[in-house]
């Protein structure tokens, strides 16, 4: 009702013929230069496309790289114990001293097919793994470390190399067990020291793995 009146009121607001003529005359006098059309017009979807590219570049250029294996720490491979001694089983001390390995099948699962399978598949590959200084001590976030170890004894040698003389005596007292596709290094008193596995692991996964290893050891 009121707005109908508004429409009616608007009907009285219109251009007179004189006003129209005046507008026409003015426009005909005007020198009209065609406006240049812009070469590039930024559309809203272009913002989305730019953002998507930025995300992809960030993902592949920055974040994705953090998950990539880091170069292996420098180590002298010639000091590694020969793999044959591991395959035959035995404690680390005997392995490092190149003596004939004594068979201790109850603690060393090297005779299991899983171990040999790993060795066949990854003879000397670069594997990522985790390292734990001690079961009760601080945990070194070694998930990003890349270690060139496949067997338990190689792991032992790696630790000795990487962590220097201070740990060497401890390392020499370690036992190495291979469980499926992972190897675990234990100190003489049964504390897990290092777990080497095929894939990069999170802290939680590492803990779970060590628990599994301890449980298996108990069995």
């Amino acid at each position: 009702m009121t707005l109908n009146k508004y429409q009616k009121a608007n009907e009285f607001i219109r251009l007179s013929e004189d006003q129209k003529e005046s507008i026409v005359a003015n426009l005909l006098k005007e020198e009209i230069t065609p406006a240049r059309k812009p070469l590039f017009v930024f559309r809203p979807w272009m913002a989305g496309l730019t953002a998507a590219f930025a995300v992809l570049i960030l993902y592949f250029g920055v974040f994705h790289r953090t998950g990539a294996p880091m170069p292996a720490p420098a180590m002298n491979e010639t000091t590694y114990a020969p793999q044959e001694s591991l395959a035959a089983g035995g404690d680390s001390a005997s392995a490092l001293s190149d003596e004939a390995p004594a068979a201790e099948p109850e603690t060393f699962a090297a005779a299991e097919p899983a171990n040999t399978k790993i060795k066949e598949e990854h003879p000397s590959e670069i594997l990522t793994g985790g390292y734990r200084e001690s079961a009760s001590g601080t945990t070194a976030d070694a998930a990003s470390q890349t270690i060139r170890i496949l067997s338990g004894q190689e792991a032992e040698a790696f630790d000795a190399q990487s962590y220097g003389e201070k740990r060497e005596t401890v390392i020499l007292d370690t036992e190495v067990s291979v469980y499926g596709n992972r190897a675990a290094v234990f100190s003489a008193n049964g504390e897990p020291m290092a777990v080497i596995c095929e894939k990069q692991m999170s802290e939680e996964e590492m803990d779970g793995l060590i628990r599994d290893v301890i449980r298996d050891l108990g069995n």
Binding site: N10, I13, R14, L15, K20, I23, V24, L27, L28, I32
Partner: peptide, 21 residues
């Protein structure tokens, strides 16, 4: 000029009042 004039007149007659209001 005459084309432009026709164009202007058409626009004015069709939409002039709406634009003015």
């Amino acid at each position: 000029l005459s084309v432009r004039e026709l164009h202007v007149r058409r626009i004015l007659n069709t939409y002039g009042d709406s634009l003015y209001r």
